[in-house]
Design a protein around this nucleic acid. Structure first.
Lengths: 181, 181
DNA sequence: GAGCGCATGTAATATGTTACATGATTCA
DNA sequence: TGAATCATGTAACATATTACATGCGCTC
């Protein structure tokens, strides 16, 4: 269960309310590439973590808004979780990757259709990330400002890799698709 | 919920028992990179799918062993699931990727420790996959024999991408780690 | 003052994991 | 005949998703 660590990580960047954390999971890079959660998981978890002393309410605003920040205990917990050996119970579960693996079960013609879609989608995503990177200029430092640079670069390389794989796979399959040259 | 589709995909390659499917998820490429499940999920799901006519028992062996195969209805279901537009409810949840995103929350020195570990691990995995690919020779065709080739290539490119990213990230962080050149 | 978005929560349902449980078969 | 592995299952628990629910505050 990594939700508390994801929350600690986001709060370590800057204090936030449950509502803002929810938005971050919905729209941010972390929610897109790494971990997802809805508000119905986040609110109870924040209360639990506050009870455990990992986070604390640092501000109360309008409409019952409570801004949380990481406590020293929370920071320590996050650090040891990140530094501890992978101890991997690693349950991978990625629908997109599953689809890619199962392509072999399709006729080559069908598989190529899907692969072309993957190639187009990943190329578009990669182009978008390249545009964002160019706009922001070369990275001059990575700090508590956010995951932006590391995340963007990671996403870019990931998309490029999948794109290259899809193009390669299409080449492998096309001879079978068009045996009559 | 993609477990039934993962099962359909594995059974489309060849009929198998619940026990064998469990082993495949434990040790196979699909279980490693794409989707995981334990026997306590698999057995009830197979029974449900048999009730729905997606799979059928084609053989009964010793110790109550039941070998399942995909029915035409199951094949049709798998195909339309693979061809349908991504309709992305895509709930990404990858602990390793989460760790990578949260690195920014660490001191640069700590982050570099973790990144070096990632770089070493991904380099080793990539080397292993390259070795396997070299042993099996160039791919001459992809058929119902399995996910082997597509999977190995996908894994290799994935590991190379993460490796490249980790090395890049180390370079970004090291000036901060050693400000006194 | 009406509507929208902010902000938090509970309850019911689905799903997945861990622990528990059973019995058959093979091999030493 | 004893141990290991095959082979399947149920029950209890933890977790996640969906639906339901409430009320404040801002803006038009």
């Amino acid at each position: 269960m990594s939700l508390p660590h994801a929350l600690l990580g986001l709060l370590a960047v800057q204090p936030r309310s449950g509502y803002e954390l929810t938005k971050e999971f919905e729209a941010g890079d972390l929610g897109r590439y790494a971990w997802q959660a809805g508000h119905t998981s986040i609110y109870p978890e924040l209360n639990r973590m506050a009870g455990d002393g990992l986070v604390e309410v640092v501000q109360e605003g309008a409409r019952g808004r409570r801004t949380y920040a990481v406590t020293p205990a929370g920071r320590s917990e996050l650090r040891s979780w990140l530094l501890e050996p992978p101890s991997d119970t690693g349950r991978v579960r990625d629908v997109q990757v599953l689809r890619m693996f199962l392509l072999s079960a399709l006729d080559p013609a069908d598989a190529v259709v899907v692969l072309r879609r993957i190639a187009a989608a990943t190329a578009a995503e990669a182009a978008e990330l390249r545009r964002i990177r160019a706009e922001n200029g070369p990275p001059v430092g990575i700090g508590p400002a956010g995951f932006g640079l590391l995340a963007a670069e990671f996403g870019l390389r990931q998309y490029e890799a999948v794109n290259g794989w899809a193009l390669w796979a299409i080449e492998q399959l096309e001879p079978a698709e068009q045996p009559v040259g």
